[in-house]
Structure formats: C-alpha cells, structure tokens
C-alpha cells in the first residue's frame, strides 16, 4: 500500500465511522416516534445498513474475491432459511403460549426436619 492509497483508505474509514454514528443517532431518534410496527422495521433496516457498511468497507468485502463474498453471503442466506423454516411452525401456531413456569424454591428447614425438605412455589405476583 502506497501513501496515496493509505490516505484514501484513512479517509474512507473516517467517513464510514461518521456515517455509522449518524445512523445510530437516527435509529435512536426513530424509537421516540410513534410508528407502530415500523419502529421495529426502522430499527432493523438501519441496523442492516450499518452492518452492510461494516461488511463492505471495514471488512473489505468490496475488494474481496468471489470465494470470500460467497462464504459471507452463505452465512446470512442460511440464517434466512432458519428464520423461514422456524416461522412455518412458530408464526402460524394459533394457540396462546402458556406463561413460563415459575422456578421452584426450597424453603429453608430447621436442622431437625432437614431430612425431608419441603418444596413450595413462590406466591404468584
């Protein structure tokens, strides 16, 4: 890497960093707006843009050979398969999920009756 390329790369990294911080603040601001489901959409879309910047510029996928790009894409593509196939079950299940079971607690016992510990549930909140 010569001087000119180092300077260009330095400028590029600085610019990307500023853009990432600006996007972070945009994401923060969007959370205070009443957007309904679009609060989540905005948050995830901005996160996707930020990670694309990190992948493309910081991790240099932009100048990576096809083999590296393919491996990077395969990870995200397989995650997409995981989401869709899990959704086939979870997103289409009609029943209301049961409340998670409260953990059981052992009640402290006096030394004499310690042989048979009594199990009790905490009082429901």
């Amino acid at each position: 890497m010569d001087d000119a390329r180092l300077h260009r790369r330095g400028r590029e990294i600085l610019l990307t960093w500023a853009l990432l911080l600006a996007l972070m603040l945009t994401s923060l601001g969007s959370a205070y707006l009443r957007l309904g489901v679009f609060n989540m959409v905005a948050g995830l879309a901005i996160a996707a843009i930020k990670s694309a910047l990190v992948l493309w510029i910081f991790m240099r996928l932009r100048s990576a050979p096809a083999l590296i790009r393919l491996v990077a894409a395969a990870g995200f593509a397989l995650w997409g398969v995981l989401v869709v196939l899990s959704g086939v079950d979870y997103a289409t299940r009609a029943e209301t999920p049961a409340e998670a079971q409260r953990p059981l607690q052992l009640v402290p016992q006096p030394a004499a009756s310690a042989a048979s510990p009594v199990v009790s549930r905490p009082a429901p909140a």
Partner: peptide, 9 residues
C-alpha cells in the same frame, strides 16, 4: 435496536 429501542415513546 432490539434491546434498547423497542418502544421508547
């Protein structure tokens, strides 16, 4: 965004 920004309003 998934932890801190779910619904700040």
């Amino acid at each position: 965004p998934l932890i801190y920004l779910v619904s700040r309003h």
